[in-house]
């Protein structure tokens, strides 16, 4: 047994551009992800985030390098079809456009799609569908038509569809990008619940820095290279790096950074608005005590 659920060694992958030329999409990626971790992956469009996601559940194959899932070498080239299906079951994916990943015309049939493909017996599929709907908070929508649901609800259905396969890891490929703030909150809350209570490993590809703030670790990709693999606090303590990468910085982090530049020695590594407010208040109180 491997200590890491996902491990890559010198992983490289190429893609074919529209002129048919091979170009590197990922270069020498070394990753270690433990079971139950919450990982955010950030990077500009075209930095290789989606390629990485598709490699991890064998939708794409690497040009070179190794991928180990739960200790097993996925790149040995002699995996049986059943072994590949098992990897896709264990590493589920949720994509950006909710409309393009819902297969069936009725919610419960869509959630059953994965288990049906896996040949799970009917009573067990029923149990899993009910459980998955319960988990994403969509009980009562069994017979609804997906195209009438809101974006956030559709994405929760997509998550439930993955959940019904009983995965150990869920990869969300910009799954919140097309949602409004309410829908985004619905999806994030669901994912955090799965990570916290069901111990599911989460890999969250996102453009929203305030989503990345909540992860255990943030991975920064740029032009196919892995530039950072830091806890969020450490990453957001270099706002200049993030700006250089065209990644944007949460306003709270920006404020703290500006204050420090102007000589205010704030303590700690605050990243969320609550923490930043706390740090500023602490400084204010100390200053008052000092002054008064």
């Amino acid at each position: 047994m491997d200590e890491y659920f996902i491990r890559t060694e010198h992983l490289c992958c190429n893609y074919r551009d529209e002129n048919g030329r091979e170009a590197p999409a990922l270069i020498d990626i070394n990753l270690k992800i433990k079971k139950g971790e919450y990982i955010a992956v950030i990077g500009r469009n075209g930095s290789g985030k989606s390629t990485l996601a598709k490699l991890l559940n064998m939708i794409l194959l690497p040009a070179s390098g190794k991928i180990y899932i739960d200790g097993k070498d996925m790149t040995s080239g002699n995996l049986s079809d059943d072994e590949i299906l098992d990897i896709r079951r264990r590493v589920g994916m949720v994509f950006q456009n909710p409309d393009n990943q819902i297969v069936a015309t009725i919610v419960e049939e869509d959630i059953a799609f994965g288990p049906e493909n896996l040949g799970i017996p009917t009573p067990e599929i029923r149990r899993r569908v009910d459980y998955a709907l319960e988990t994403v908070g969509m009980r009562g929508y069994e017979k609804h038509e997906p195209h009438r649901l809101s974006g956030g609800q559709k994405q929760r259905i997509a998550i439930a569809g993955v959940l019904a396969m009983q995965p150990e890891c869920i990869i969300l490929d910009e799954a919140t990008a097309m949602l409004d703030p309410r829908g985004r909150a619905e999806v994030i809350n669901t994912i955090e619940l799965l990570n916290r209570e069901r111990k599911i490993t989460v890999i969250m590809i996102t453009h929203h820095m305030n989503e990345a703030v909540r992860a255990d670790r943030v991975i920064v990709l740029s032009d196919g290279r892995l530039l950072r693999d830091y806890p969020p606090r450490q990453l957001f303590s270099e706002p200049d790096f993030l700006r250089r990468q065209g990644l944007g910085v949460p306003q709270s982090v920006e404020l703290i950074d500006e204050l420090r530049r102007q000589g205010i020695a704030l303590e700690g590594e605050p990243v969320t608005p609550e923490e930043c407010a706390g740090a500023i208040m602490k400084y204010l109180k100390q200053k008052k005590a000092h002054d008064g």
Binding site: L85, Q101, V162
Partner: peptide, 24 residues
């Protein structure tokens, strides 16, 4: 859409009708 749907179906272990069970 067709392209994305095909990938999504593959991710959900679709491999044709063989060995498929049904919810209903």
């Amino acid at each position: 859409r067709a392209d994305e749907l095909a990938t999504a179906m593959e991710c959900r272990c679709y491999h044709g009708g063989e060995g498929r069970t049904r919810l209903n």
